[in-house]
Simulated assay, not measured.
Amino acid sequence: MTEPTLHFTPCEDAAGGHRMAWWQWGDATASRVVVCVHGLTRQGRDFDELAKALVVHAGGSVRVVCPDVVGRGQSDWLRDPAGYQIPVYAADMLALLAQLHREQPIATLDYVGTSMGGLIGMVLAGNRELPLPAPIRRLVLNDVGPALDPDALRRIGAYVGQGGRYASMADAAAALWSLSATFGPHTSAQWAELSRHMVAPSAQRNADGSGKVDADAAPGDGPFVLHYDPAIAVPLRAFTPESTAQAETVMWALYDAITAQTLLLRGAQSDLLRPATAAAMTQRGPRATLVEFEGVGHAPTLVVPDQYGAITSFLFSP
């Protein structure tokens, strides 16, 4: 399989509900499921290289699911931007897992989360009262932990939601690279592939504010716009030092309750996941195994063989 299939899950919210899109690789009838969840401004196609590697390693007998978190990619945009927060995202993941379990019972569940996706994973793995169809067996946290560096959060908040309109894909890729140099070295082909799913032709975006992709509209050659709802920045900019400290306390409690075998990936030059936090994560809770990548900041993109290979080896080790 060279391309995934696109599916949707209905999710509840106070404004009448929304749809979350997700990309599926591998065997839809497999009882082993790996869920891969992206970072704040990214989308599910970030995991294409990892997903292909997992399917090959499993001989095809795995179901890899990569959602577009609400407000991103092919998913709906929320009517109330206050909903762009971890509790809503975690509830959507529960709805997705319930749907997957109805379609084919899940016997083994693994989870890979980059940045924001890792925070969602800590909620799912650390709260034992949540109705998961199966316990998370192995958890991969990509450059994220219970404590996040405040300066890095301010750096990210400075560009999230600023929008963007690009005349061509080449222009879009160049603009995105200017914001993403911390991802580390990439070939032109790798960056072009990562950028391809980060924008959408403006003709395909409905004008009703829903953010839904209009598949009947002619895509044209441009202009292109960012794939995500600019309003995802609203809750981020509402954080205060006090609310950040409270959230950190909650996340450490969730982390300490995790029983899944855990792999922690870190860009050696990451400004979001501090070395002290990563070290603490190896000593408490699930006592994560730490793997660092030199020359990379926040966050490893998992398109380089040594990065996705570390995950594949971890998930398929005895």
Rank of each mutant, 00 (worst) to 15 (best):
Y84N: 09
A98R: 10
D80E: 13
I120G: 07
P81S: 08
I86R: 02
R137P: 13
L109Y: 08
V140C: 15
E103D: 03
I136Q: 14
Y111H: 12
R63Y: 06
K52F: 01
G73K: 01
Y84D: 11
H57G: 08
M116Y: 01
L141I: 13
A95G: 08
L100I: 08
V55G: 04
A51S: 09
G83W: 00
R45C: 01
G71M: 07
R137D: 15
V88C: 07
P133H: 06
V56F: 00
G145Q: 05
R128S: 15
V70N: 07
A82Y: 01
Q99P: 04
L40I: 10
A147I: 08
T108C: 14
Y84P: 08
D76H: 06
D48C: 02
V62K: 05
D68R: 00
G71Y: 03
G44Y: 00
V64Y: 00
H101C: 07
D80Q: 10
R79N: 09
V69I: 12
D48A: 05
V140Q: 12
F47W: 03
L54A: 05
G60W: 04
E103T: 06
M122T: 15
C66V: 04
R79E: 14
L109H: 06
R42F: 01
V123H: 15
L94V: 14
A51C: 07
L100C: 05
H38Q: 03
T41D: 03
L119H: 03
P131H: 11
L97D: 09
P81I: 10
L94Q: 07
Q74L: 02
A107K: 12
I106D: 00
Q43N: 10
W77C: 10
D76V: 10
A95Q: 11
V140F: 13
A125G: 13
E49Q: 06
D48M: 01
D46V: 04
V140R: 12
A51Y: 02
G39F: 02
L124N: 12
G121L: 15
A91D: 13
M122V: 14
P135W: 14
V69N: 09
A90T: 11
V64A: 05
T114G: 07
G60H: 03
H38G: 04
P67N: 08
L124D: 14
D46L: 02
T41C: 09
Y84W: 04
L119C: 03
G71P: 04
V70S: 11
L96T: 12
P131Q: 13
Q104C: 06
R42P: 05
H57S: 14
W77H: 07
R137S: 15
A107Y: 02
L109G: 10
Y111A: 11
L130W: 13
D46M: 01
P67M: 07
S75Y: 02
H57I: 10
M116P: 00
L130I: 14
T114H: 06
A95H: 08
G39D: 02
Q99Y: 01
F47G: 04
R137T: 15
T41F: 01
